[in-house]
């Protein structure tokens, strides 16, 4: 009959041999039962210890314990291996991380949107808040209140898009038999703001405008402006320069120079175009370029909006988002901005 040690060694050897083929948790459990279960081979050896002479028992106990430790280590290693395999099965085959993602890339914002948000952010820093007005506008808000006489060329049917007499707008109700039109500038928001809120006021109004123009490289059937208006007790030309110089530096960089060139708009007096000159504008670098119109609010406009020109003064400006966008990005044809060609949009995203 084999010695106890031989029996222990054989049981462990058999278990180690069987372990090589264990793949699943069930097989692991079966092996565990064969080895250390109630009827397991190691269990049987340890039970046989009772038959040994008393003086041999301590030595035998040590041997059985050592064998048990080996068995447990074997089973723990097997468990780790089985768990690893289970995890691998749950995860499936490892993907090739060098493959491109099949998901669509992030989308893009339109360059006009980016310009608009930049412009608005700039003026928000100066305490301007965003205001809005309707695109279908009354003749009074678009022209009369802005000191544009009835025979002014801008009001001609040839230059302005009018709506038929049957058109009724919930957002711009007519007074009397005045005409409705597609606003030719966002300056109409000046009027709506001054009529609806008390000064001091400081607003910027982004919006879409319309002129009856044929589409070409520099003209568009519609375009976008941002109007600015600041009304307070003593607004000056120095304030105008302060605000607009800040805008130009934020938009075109600190190296951009500005000049106020006298011009004419019916709703401002004095009126100016602001020109910029900058080294960072590609082909247009170093040339004076018109970027916006501005001036002090004409007293007649204040009066039309029920503000006393003796008490209140204001500055106003209007800039074209297309113009700014084209200058900043070096775009030479306004039609790109309305063509919606992704090859264009992705470049400027």
């Amino acid at each position: 009959m084999a010695t106890m040690q031989e029996q222990l060694d054989r049981a462990l050897a058999e278990a180690e041999q069987a372990a090589a083929s264990v793949r699943t948790r069930a097989e692991l459990e079966a092996l565990k039962a064969r080895l250390v279960g109630p009827n397991g081979s190691l269990t049987a050896v340890s039970k046989s210890m009772g038959a040994l002479p008393k003086e041999e028992r301590p030595e035998a106990g040590k041997r059985v314990n050592a064998a048990r430790q080996r068995a447990e280590a074997l089973l723990a290693a097997l468990l780790a291996r089985v768990e690893e395999a289970e995890l691998a099965a749950a995860l499936g085959p490892a993907p090739d991380p060098t493959l491109p993602s099949p998901d669509a890339p992030a989308g893009t914002l339109h360059p006009l949107t980016r310009t608009r948000e930049r412009v608005l952010a700039t003026f928000r820093k100066l305490g301007f808040v965003v205001a809005e007005g309707p695109e279908v506008e009354t003749e009074w808000h678009c022209f009369d209140a802005l000191n544009t006489p009835a025979d002014h060329p801008a009001r001609d049917m040839q230059d302005t898009l009018y709506l038929p007499a049957s058109f009724r707008s919930a957002d711009a109700p007519r007074k009397g038999d005045e005409a409705l039109l597609l606003r030719t500038h966002t300056s109409s928001v000046q009027v709506r703001t001054m009529l609806s809120r008390k000064p001091p006021l400081r607003i910027v109004a982004p919006g879409r405008c319309f002129r009856r123009d044929a589409v070409d490289a520099t003209h568009s059937a519609n375009f976008h402006q941002v109007e600015g208006l600041w009304v307070d007790r003593s607004v000056t030309l120095a304030d105008l320069r302060g605000v607009l110089d800040f805008f130009v530096r934020e938009t075109f960089g600190p190296e951009a120079e500005t000049r106020l060139r006298p011009s004419f708009f019916p709703f401002t007096e004095p009126s100016f175009e602001m020109d910029i000159r900058s080294p960072g504008l590609g082909r247009l670098s170093g040339r004076w370029l018109e970027v916006l119109g501005c001036g002090l609010v004409d007293p007649k406009v204040l009066a039309a909006c029920d503000l006393d020109p003796g008490e209140w003064s204001g500055l106003a400006f209007g800039l074209g988002l297309e113009r700014i966008t084209m200058l900043v990005h070096g775009i030479d044809d306004i039609r790109h901005l309305y063509a919606n060609d992704l090859r264009f949009l992705r470049q400027l995203a």
């Binding site: 992030a106 989308g107 893009t108 949107t113 898009l161 059937a221 519609n222 995203a349």
Partner: peptide
Amino acid sequence: LRLAGSGHAECCHYSL
């Protein structure tokens, strides 16, 4: 921002 973030490219068409 949301729509651009979810893979949409922004367009701009004429109103007329």
